[in-house]
Design a protein around this nucleic acid. Structure first.
Length: 292
DNA sequence: CCGCGGGCCTGAGAGC
DNA sequence: TGCTCTCAGGCCCGCG
């Protein structure tokens, strides 16, 4: 489900409920996520204080006082829900309204400030893993991830360098977390439209023969930063599962220009029509008339 | 090393 | 109503 803007929205919702608070109890109701949750998971977290809630790419990183980092991924359908003291009933009611949703509440953190943080994930593609902070730089899940697109270091030169020599499509390259961190299917489609670049274009064509960025690389970087900023400001996109930690919906899905808009007129006004194609097994939405 | 396809899961929606 | 089929915001792994 979640791409960088949704994960960042979740991070901002978790931080006030967790930072500075102690984890009084952890309930693991279903260990079978993407990988089984380790047997010592609860023991290593119980009684520890949360020093901070961060994000790297689409991973949430919870620093705890023991020196561990709780590395969490939302997969396709993961979400978090925060309830303050005495709101359990409201959560139950919420889940009742959402039918069987509570059956997918796999992990619950009970915080010393009275907050309850619940991880829900119907498809169970999400994951949770404890990693010693000192070993984070060798963590396989994070080691080969590329630059954070909203960081100041991320620029056209960096993107061009990563794409230079790539025979694959621009769409596939931008989805590759080694090239740039945090983009997924929606925001890649939206980015390519904003930059007016075809998803089918060979990735290497944003760099010259020496790997230096051209105008296309500059346009792409501008589009990536803009679309992510806009989406974060809107609280992410809510298609099915994504919600802010307080339960409210994100709004960015109303601002999609091409994603899931097959057959609609091109928002550029170019008289073209948004088309859906399949690349590497995933839907791509774009305007063949103005994305070149 | 690179790129691709399979597989992991459940649920929603379309079509019959 | 209910069945079957397709598709879904991700990513690890094994293959060629």
């Amino acid at each position: 489900m979640p791409e960088l803007p949704e994960v960042e929205t979740v991070r901002r919702g978790l931080a006030p409920a967790m930072e500075g608070a102690r984890i009084d109890n952890v309930e693991v109701r279903h260990r079978g996520l993407r990988w089984p949750i380790a047997k010592d998971f609860e023991k290593r977290l119980k009684g520890k204080t949360v020093d901070g809630v961060g994000r790297r790419a689409k991973y949430l990183l919870v620093d705890v006082s023991s020196g561990d980092v709780l590395v969490m991924h939302l997969g396709m359908s993961g979400s978090f829900r925060v309830a303050k003291d005495g709101e359990e009933g409201k959560i139950a009611k919420y889940h009742h309204e959402k039918a069987k949703s509570a059956t997918h509440d796999h992990v619950v953190f009970h915080m010393s400030n009275g907050a309850t943080v619940t991880f829900n994930d119907p498809r169970r593609f999400g994951s949770m893993k404890l990693v010693a902070r000192a070993k984070m730089d060798q963590e396989p899940l994070l080691r080969s991830i590329g630059p954070e697109p909203l960081g100041n270091e991320f620029d056209a030169a960096m993107l061009a360098h990563a794409c230079a020599g790539k025979k694959t499509s621009l769409k596939a390259a931008l989805l590759d977390q080694r090239v740039v961190a945090g983009l997924g299917n929606i925001y890649v489609c939206e980015t390519l439209f904003r930059a007016r670049l075809s998803p089918k274009r060979q990735a290497s064509t944003i760099a010259d023969r020496k790997g230096q960025p051209n105008g296309r690389a500059v346009a792409l970087v501008d589009a990536i930063k803009a679309v992510l900023h806009d989406a974060i400001k809107a609280g992410g996109s809510s298609l099915r599962d994504h919600r802010r930690a307080d339960g409210s919906l994100g709004d960015f899905q109303h601002n999609f220009l091409v994603y899931d808009r097959e057959g609609k007129p091109c928002p550029d006004g170019c008289k073209g029509t948004v088309k859906r194609i399949v690349q590497n097994g995933r839907s791509t939405f774009y305007c063949p008339a103005c994305q070149k």
